[in-house]
Amino acid sequence: MNKQDWKILLVDDEHEFITTLAERLELRGINTRVVFDGESALLAVAEDEPQVMILDVLMPGIKGLEVLERVKRTNPNVQVLLLTGHGSTRDGIEGMRLGAFDYMMKPLNIDTLIEKMESAIDYAGKAAKLGQ
């Protein structure tokens, strides 16, 4: 699948960080939708299911792991990459147990992020074929 066809949802309450990341991804031909909290993330997933959701663990309101849990219940095909911080490797591991595809620590390396998104999309494609 071409990068132009990817559907990526970015979720983080750090506005400057996540909008700049979106801009960098768009420069690489990857379309994204950005939301800034867990509630909006759940709505965005319900409206227009993304293939991959980049999800910050520590957000005010609904926490990242709860968003993950709810999305995996309603839209199991959405692959979730968690963004964790210092000392939150445990959150990353817990997230994997809850069905996250992978987790990464901030600050990000954009090339690594794109590689992980590509792997997640490949995985989702294969999983969907097996499910048919």
Partner: peptide
């Protein structure tokens, strides 16, 4: 405070990357 510092550094890295 270190979580905040991490967010600040992540934003600086993305801005420099842009």
């Amino acid at each position: 405070a270190t979580h905040e510092m991490q967010n600040i550094l992540a934003t600086i890295r993305e801005s420099a990357g842009l």
